[in-house]
Write a protein that binds this DNA or RNA. Structure first.
Lengths: 132, 132
DNA sequence: ATCCACCTTCCCATGGTTGGAAGGTCAATA
DNA sequence: TATTGACCTTCCAACCATGGGAAGGTGGAT
């Protein structure tokens, strides 16, 4: 299977597959005589794994670790669970940040009449000496 | 006032101030004879504005626009409000994404005993053919 | 023989920020 | 006066994950 087919099956862009290989996240693909990368079901499997972990917001560094754990039959599940829970904490911090931004902006926008007049509490609040 | 003092007063890193200037987000600072940038209260004011807008998650491109609107006495408040509400929508999309990730991960982690044993539903779910 | 779709490697861009290197300036002190 | 140390200057590079494009080689069909 060439890289294009592996890309189609895994849903990971061919360009990205090469990139992941260069980062050492996936093992180096074997090559045909002319230099084309070849893939089997197994590699597609790994790529799918990476794609799903990415969709859960793990960084590539974390994913590299996860792939290692996944391929290591004797890993302890505690290690994976710990990573997952640390990640959940990070997600929660981000969610909190974004929700703060959202509520602040909504509060400001509520007081802005939003018509042709120039006075705008949003801008004022961003620039005034009193904090937002 | 030198750039260091402006940085201290505005809370924006000196390095970042130069960067913002190069991006055209803040006006070019005037210089002393020897080339040092000089700042007044007014510039510090703009920097503070930028910092707060950044804290609300606006992109630098959006902030450039906001600074322009802020400095333009005849802007329409509707324009600002529209930007704010578009930004709120974007925030909501991100929040949703992160919350999906969080709940998926929590669901997976709940089923993982997280001890010394190797079997781990988190990894299995990431790699299995059935979707997460 | 030609054509098109595929593959290869390479470099560059994004966005926002931070880091360092190499060098100039300012003010105070020995 | 000379030196020191804190500040300033510009330029170049890194981070992370991804995408774009150039320039050139391969594979297989017509």
């Amino acid at each position: 299977m060439n890289i294009g087919e592996a890309a189609k099956q895994s849903g990971v862009n061919a360009k990205l597959i090469r990139h992941y290989e260069s980062l050492g996240i996936i093992p180096k693909a074997s090559r045909t005589e002319s230099g084309y990368r070849t893939y089997s079901e197994n590699e597609v499997h790994i790529l799918t794994f990476v794609k799903r972990a990415r969709a859960l917001g793990f960084s590539m560094k974390e994913i590299k670790k996860l792939v290692g754990l996944w391929r290591n039959r004797s890993r302890a599940s505690s290690e994976v669970k710990t990573m997952a829970m640390v990640h959940v904490k990070n997600l929660e911090v981000k969610i909190n940040d974004l929700e703060m931004m959202r509520s602040t902006l909504l509060k400001l926008a509520k007081n802005c009449h939003g018509d042709g007049r120039p006075d705008c509490p949003i801008l004022e609040s961003l620039s005034d000496s009193k904090k937002v």
